[in-house]
Amino acid sequence: MTDHTTRLDHVVLWVRDPIAAAHFYEQAVGLEPVRLTDYSVGEAPFPSVRVNEETILDLMPLATAERMTMLPGAAESSGHPVNHVCLSLPAGDFDALRDRLEERSVPVSDLAHDSFGARGLARRSFYFRDPDGNIFEARHYD
């Protein structure tokens, strides 16, 4: 039987310094860098970080915005109109993420409870920004 489930493959984030961004996502958020070495030596146009086995975040250099010609106005879209990206984690990983962010003095919002999402009501959630101003929500359902 063919799998017809739609899945999220990747989200592209505009970043000033893709290498610094990859290090932030690896060290503060706990995501594995992908193609970082290839990007560092000029063999890949951007690095990524792996969210899970099916989803990555592409860390697109902001300097390439002017070359985004696939859609009219794409260059001006950098950072807009996406409000935030939400990461869903198990409770232990959620707590570890919040601890890593606080250890690195990354501002985090107060905890919210029972916010609605793709899997119903999340037990807890909070928001944080990456160094480029992209907003993330972290949540857990268990």
Rank of each mutant, 00 (worst) to 15 (best):
Y39W: 14
V49E: 09
E53W: 10
L8I: 10
L36P: 08
R16C: 05
E54A: 09
A118K: 07
I56K: 01
N52S: 13
L89W: 04
V34L: 03
L111G: 01
S125R: 00
H113K: 02
R100F: 14
L62V: 06
P33R: 08
G30M: 13
Q27V: 09
V85F: 07
R104F: 10
I56A: 03
P61D: 14
L87M: 08
V49P: 02
V34K: 01
D114Y: 04
D58L: 08
V29G: 01
H4W: 14
F128G: 02
T5F: 11
V85I: 12
C86W: 00
R35M: 13
P45S: 06
L8S: 09
H23Q: 13
R16Q: 14
D58Y: 05
G30F: 15
P81M: 12
G79H: 10
A22Y: 05
L111N: 02
T2A: 14
L97N: 07
E32M: 08
D9Y: 12
R50P: 04
R100Y: 15
N83L: 03
P47H: 02
H23C: 08
L36R: 04
I56G: 02
R124F: 00
V82P: 00
S109Y: 12
G117M: 00
Y39M: 08
R7S: 14
V34T: 13
G133P: 00
G79I: 02
F116H: 11
F126L: 04
A74N: 09
V51S: 01
E137L: 06
F24W: 13
Y141A: 00
L101T: 15
H113E: 10
P47M: 01
V106T: 15
E102H: 14
M68N: 11
L59S: 06
C86D: 00
A20M: 11
F116R: 02
Q27C: 05
D9N: 05
L57I: 13
A22S: 11
A28F: 11
G133S: 08
E137V: 03
S125C: 00
H10Q: 09
L59F: 11
P45Y: 05
Y25I: 12
F116D: 06
L59I: 11
E54Y: 09
E43K: 14
R129P: 07
V106N: 08
A138E: 06
H113F: 04
S77C: 06
V12C: 10
D132C: 07
M60N: 14
D142F: 07
R104H: 11
N83H: 12
R98F: 12
S48R: 03
P33M: 10
Y25C: 05
N52T: 13
R139G: 00
V106W: 10
E66A: 13
L59A: 07
V82A: 05
L62E: 15
D9W: 08
L62P: 04
R7L: 13
Q27N: 15
S88H: 05
W14A: 09
D110V: 11
D9G: 11
R7T: 03
G79L: 14
S88Y: 07
F46D: 10
T55M: 08
Y25W: 14
S109L: 03
D17R: 04
N134Q: 05
E102M: 06
V51F: 09
R123W: 00
W14M: 12
V11H: 07
H84D: 09
M60W: 15
P18V: 01
A44S: 15
T5A: 15
D17P: 01
I135L: 15
P61V: 05
D3N: 12
R123S: 03
L111A: 02
M70G: 09
D142T: 04
S125I: 00
F128K: 04
